[in-house]
Amino acid sequence: MVGSFIPKNKKEALDLKAKYTELIPYSGGTDLMVENRKNPSYLFLGKLNELKGIKKTDGKIEIGAETTFTEALESPIIPQMMKDALILIAAPAIRNTGTFAGNIGNGSAKADSALIEYGLDAVITVESVRGERNIPIEDFYLGRKHIDLNEDEIITKITIPDIHPDFYSYEKVGGRKALAISRIAFLGILEMESDKIKSISVSFGAVSEKIIRYKDVEKMLIGLTKEEAKAKKDEFVKAYEDRMQLTEGRVSADYRKKVTIKLLKEFLKNGGI
């Protein structure tokens, strides 16, 4: 037990994390406060201005890892689909203190902001005294409660593309309207180029150990017109049906399977496919 630290700046935070690798990064504390660990050693990062804030740079949006959900909701830069997910997180008090880093830092496939980051091919920046690494989010998540973060590193930034898709659909299924851990979350994004599908992104959260996104399946529809895609629709849906192995949790795997497929079909239908 080394005690807890409130670093003054990022450099000090990185130095501390290098020196005391057992320090637990503490962002908003909305999970850690509930855990109420005995004699914890925390590295308090939530108030570091260098790790906060949202900015737009050449087609990209950079979100400081310690930005709170409320701050993001108030930002004109954050895309609406992210806001759709953020506004349904827990309750106002938790959104006021919960952060992007914290949401992905515990490695849960139920993290509401992480689903949007998956769908948008976000890049996670992690830093240490040794330098920085930029990791595509699907590589960042290694498994349940397991992320690609070395013991001297902290999450510093999340970068998403500044896109304005032709169509997207976000759905969250919880047990109630607030303070509800996602039982199923869905994000579908459709981008067209003239009359052809430029990209299609389909992600499922909270249904498996990791967020599910099959880029090889998505390829099936890329470059097709909507009419052509319609012909492949059944095959496309079946690819998900066959491949998705969903886990039993607060709801059954069977329920998850039924709903995910229904949401996928609805997305395609509303997207004109």
Binding site: R176, A178, A180
Partner: peptide
């Protein structure tokens, strides 16, 4: 716990 035993919140 109240994550697994859900009662209505004010939003419900």
């Amino acid at each position: 716990n109240f994550s697994d035993y859900l009662i209505p919140t004010s939003m419900d």
